[in-house]
Design a binder for these strands. Sequence first.
DNA 1: AGAAATCTGTTAATTAGTTCAAAGTTTCAC
DNA 2: GTGAAACTTTGAACTAATTAACAGATTTCT
Lengths: 214, 214
Amino acid sequence: MKIPQATAKRLPLYYRFLKNLHSSGKQRVSSAELSEAVKVDSATIRRDFSYFGALGKKGYGYNVNYLISFFRKTLDQDELTKVALIGVGNLGTAFLNYNFLKNNNTKIECAFDVDPEKMGTMIREVPVYHMDELEKVLSEDDITVAILTVPAPVAQMITDRLVKANVKGILNFTPARLNVPPLIRVHHIDLAVELQSLVYFLKHYPTVEIEEEE
Amino acid sequence: MKIPQATAKRLPLYYRFLKNLHSSGKQRVSSAELSEAVKVDSATIRRDFSYFGALGKKGYGYNVNYLISFFRKTLDQDELTKVALIGVGNLGTAFLNYNFLKNNNTKIECAFDVDPEKMGTMIREVPVYHMDELEKVLSEDDITVAILTVPAPVAQMITDRLVKANVKGILNFTPARLNVPPLIRVHHIDLAVELQSLVYFLKHYPTVEIEEEE
DNA sequence: AGAAATCTGTTAATTAGTTCAAAGTTTCAC
DNA sequence: GTGAAACTTTGAACTAATTAACAGATTTCT
């Protein structure tokens, strides 16, 4: 199945809004209504959905329950994805308090930090281990996704360890650009760059309105 | 000047790495070297730079100091951009502790929350006001950029107030998709979607390697 | 039942973004 | 000074993504 990247990035968004619609009692929805909610052009939504075949009915729209169950399967929502959090600083702690599980069936299973004070504690029921135990815990728990919220200077070194420990995907909140072997996937979220580019757009594109994602 | 969006988003990234190069003593740099550092194809870098005219020299590369001073002007780094933070929860607090100023000449000038406990306190030298004072403080301080880290259910209501208070750009960390008038710019950073889409890519695009942003 | 309205699926057109590669400068080594 | 090597600039090709537009299917209305 050849789904464009841009489409793939929107799927979780669709899924979440469909669940909202469902819980507000809606049975059917048109691409135009959904567009209003998720702020994506309705033609784009129809195009996106059609990559998966004919999910809707002409003249009717889409059945909310059907779409939800379809996306649940497509997004593997039936199995829990375990995630490790590396670096329990301010940002890391914020993520530990963020309930990813609720909407996404992803769960931060364990956290790591170098601070001996933090070691052995639990934050929101997530155990915090010392960084030395990284490899051991990851392999025992069979975790292949990591959120990286460590200081930039140590990001590469820790990434190397993650890769060795069989991690396949990294959500990198560090300003560092990571060197990884070809099959490892890294998504960057660079807060300073986001803020800076917003400011740039405001000053230089004063009339246009566009959204992003990153 | 017609700079493609994709290019504009990379500018802050280039700027930061150029400063790194500078402080490590480098005088000149080729697109290939820079590519290695920022993980952007070298042809893309050359194309990006060339939108601004001929910044480099054939056979030589780019002069680091020249590029830095050029981007400093282009990114308006000489004037400080004041930013408001709305919602001093876990994520908001993390941002207050993040030193945007250091690299970007953007500064969180004030923060707002509904919690009366927080009101009147300072976090990292940033004063926390009650949400009721939003309009007053923003207009007094002439702030037009806001970081939104409030609970999703109140995001739209607060956005409406921000817009009325003359805010032009919003960095939205809320899962809500905001309704704003045409001239207001919103960048979304949706943490759950990012994590979810990373997981999707891992399962469905196991062999390809691509990076993202924003 | 028939006419009007709704709304998808998809083809085609458009726009945006990336990458290639030829042409042309500059540097460097000798 | 000369030739080879290094590197940018830029037109052109290519790839990806968005948007328009409409035929065809279904529903809704009367």
